[in-house]
Simulated scan of single mutants.
Amino acid sequence: MANHKSALKRIRSSEKRRVHNRYYARTMRNAVNAFRQLTDKNEATEQLPKVVALVDRVAKRNIIHNNKAANLKSSLYRQVNNM
Rank of each mutant, 00 (worst) to 15 (best):
T27L: 11
E15A: 12
R29I: 03
H65D: 15
N66K: 15
N62W: 02
A25L: 11
A2G: 05
K68Y: 11
R26N: 08
A53M: 07
M28N: 01
R12C: 00
V32S: 03
T39L: 09
R10T: 06
K41M: 07
A53E: 09
D56C: 03
L8V: 12
R12A: 08
H65E: 15
N82F: 10
H20P: 01
K68D: 15
R61E: 11
N82A: 15
A59C: 06
L48C: 10
V58Y: 03
S14V: 04
R10K: 14
S74P: 02
A69H: 00
M1I: 09
I64T: 08
M1V: 10
M83R: 06
K60A: 12
N42K: 14
E46R: 15
R57I: 02
V80R: 02
M1W: 11
K9Y: 08
A69L: 00
R61A: 08
V58R: 01
E46M: 13
M83K: 06
A53Q: 13
A25E: 05
V80M: 03
N67L: 11
A53L: 09
V80H: 01
K41P: 05
I63D: 01
N42G: 07
T45P: 00
A34C: 02
N67Y: 07
E46K: 15
S74Y: 04
N33P: 04
E46Y: 13
K16Q: 10
R17P: 00
E43Q: 12
R36M: 13
A2C: 05
M83C: 10
A70L: 11
H20L: 07
S75W: 03
N66T: 11
K73L: 04
I63C: 03
A59D: 03
I64Y: 06
Q47S: 09
A44V: 02
